[in-house]
Amino acid sequence: MSADDGAEAANERTERNVKRFLFVNRKAPYGTIYALEALEVVLISAAFDQDVTLVFLDDGVCQLKKGQQTKETGMKNFSPTYRALEGYDIEKLYVEKESLEHRGLTADDLLVPVKVLTTEEIGALMDQQDIVISF
């Protein structure tokens, strides 16, 4: 699914007051609150019927790791929420290939279906957005 969908689609977005929001998730799921609060913004943006895309890179790829267990640390395990995104029509999830590889992960280790892109491809994806918010 490419965000570069031509002039006609761009005009339609302008008429409907829809912008392309890209949320860049770069931090580990626990240790700081960025990932959890980023997810709250993502859910609100869906309520505003915006064109929402998520990218996970650096330690952010760990947010999607299967089998998170937080009980012993007293932190809330919010990872099931990523699986609920589909229900909010948020289906464009991209993960950076290099970030996965550096951490010994593959797409099979993740709890939702994603598209794996190279750093360069993610750069091109960012170019196509109206709003880029990095957490």
Binding site: V41, F48, Q50, I133
Partner: peptide
């Protein structure tokens, strides 16, 4: 106010500039 005000800022403004870590 609510987070909706952030999304609305993105929609209404010409540019949204983020300051953070």
């Amino acid at each position: 106010s609510g987070l909706g005000q952030l999304v609305e800022t993105g929609i209404q403004a010409d540019r949204l500039v983020v300051f953070g870590d």
